[in-house]
Every structure is written in structure tokens, then in C-alpha cells.
Simulated assay, not measured.
Amino acid sequence: MTEALDRAAELIEGADALLVCAGAGMGVDSGLPDFRGATGFWQAYPAYVRLGLRFEELADPVHFVDDPTLAWGFYGHRLDLYRRTVPHDGFRVLHEWGARVFTSNVDGQFQRAGFTDVAEVHGSIHHLQCVEPCTDDVWPADDVVVDVDPESMRATGPLPACRNCGGLARPNILMFGDWSWIGGPSQKALDALVEFRRAHRNLAVIEVGAGLAVPTVRRQAELASAVSGALIRINPREPEVRHGRGVSVPMGALEAITELARRIG
């Protein structure tokens, strides 16, 4: 492990720029739930055990049309959770290193930690759009508060409304089987990331907390590090790096980043 961490620190110090590619595991050390499999999801949300609902079933845009109080119960609870969560110290370290960010997370933790250049490939729970959608408008959810009954996990009271047509609003998150997601803001950030990568050929990539189930983040990390070979894969469960093109660090996010910071100084 010491050898891997030493090599990872060398890759970071020898690079001209740093890109962080983060999956859900990045937020676990901040206290955010691990949705890995039905068991992990139900441990975080025991109410859904009684209802027999899995994450994949709830994260479906059809509920905003067919059962909006169920849909907003799930996303309203998550919105409140993410607002109350304080990013762990690893976020601070990465920010001090001047890292750019690509993430599949929708929690806004990087922005809360001070990052401005964040490409959110699946959108953000902190922004809304129309369910229809009536336009391609996306707006902040800063003033949105959704009351949720803890027993039924359903939203109570008024639901968020579209600021253009007055109909129902939903989070600007790419869900399963989602044909109504407005991806313009995410695409703009992704295009800017492409330009960043083109401008920095000697790029080190820290991939953290990204599993194999949804390989979006892994693919981005491998693509971004293809030229330099400077990939640092931090993952306690699935840390293997293909063809020796990088360094495998089988640790959690906070522990690994803290150890790297000690070496870099």
C-alpha cells in the first residue's frame, strides 16, 4: 500500500493539472448513504423496505406524473439530506490542489466545498426543471422545501411548481429511462471539461469512489488519463486498474486523500 500511495503522489506532483472523477463513494465519508445494491439502499431508507421499493424503481421519472407525492417524497428527503451534509476534509484537499471535477453525483457536495468547475454528468438535485417539460429552462432549487412524512415517505403539502407554466417541477437529474431530462447545463460543463483536457496533456486523474455497476465515471477517468497513463483509482472494493495504466489504491476516499496529502505536503 505504501508503494502505491508513493507512486500516486509522484503522479500528482509530476502533472501539470489534476482531474477528479468521482462516484458515490466520494460522499460516504461525509455520512452519505451507500446505495450499492438493494440492501445498501434499504439500510439508508428502511421505510422503503416495507414498501418493497428499490432505488431503481424510485429513481424513475414516471412517478412525477403517476404518483408525484411518492416521487417528491424520495427526492425531497434527499434534497434535505444533501443540504445538511458537510463535505469531508478530502474535498478541501482536492480543492487546494486546484482540481477540476467530473462526477456522476447529484448531491452538490463539490460546490459546497468551494469548487466552481464541476461537470455533473447526471445533473443536480439542487436545480429544477418542468416535468413536461414546457421549456428547456433549468433553475436553482434554493427556496424549495419539501415536507416528507417519515412513515409513508410521501411528500406532504405543496409540491414544487414550474416557474414558467405553473405545472409540476422535478429535479434536473437524469433518472432511469429518462427522456424528459434537460441536459443543457450539464452538457455545457462537459464541453468545457473537454477543452480543459485538450489544454492539459500531462494530466493526472484521481478516480474516487466509482464502481463497476454504472461505469460512467470509470470510463471518463480512463479516457482522460489515456495519454499520460497517470490514473489513480481509489476504491476499497473494486480498485483494479487495467493493463497497468495507473495506480490501484484500495482505500476509502478520505483515508486515501489524507495519505496522499501527507506525501505531497
Rank of each mutant, 00 (worst) to 15 (best):
E151M: 15
F64K: 09
D16T: 06
V214C: 04
A204P: 02
A204T: 08
L5P: 06
T103R: 07
H127Q: 13
F102A: 11
I232R: 15
E238K: 00
Q109S: 13
M153H: 08
L159Y: 09
R84I: 08
V118Y: 08
D142A: 13
D136M: 09
G209A: 11
V208D: 01
G98C: 12
L159D: 09
L79V: 07
R170T: 06
L32C: 03
I182N: 11
A155I: 09
G177F: 02
L11H: 09
Q43I: 09
I232T: 05
E240G: 01
V62S: 12
A71E: 01
P185N: 10
V106Y: 03
P140G: 15
R197D: 11
K188T: 11
A169V: 05
A17Y: 00
G166V: 05
V148S: 03
E3K: 15
L70W: 07
L58D: 00
P133F: 13
A226S: 15
V49F: 11
H122M: 05
A8M: 04
D34V: 03
V49P: 01
W72Q: 06
D142R: 14
G183R: 02
G123F: 03
V241K: 06
A210W: 02
M153S: 08
V247Y: 04
D89V: 07
W139I: 12
P140W: 13
I173D: 12
L193K: 00
L19D: 01
G52V: 09
Q43C: 08
G183Y: 00
K188V: 10
I234G: 02
V118Q: 08
T69E: 13
N164K: 09
A59Q: 04
F91N: 05
D142T: 14
A226T: 09
Q187F: 08
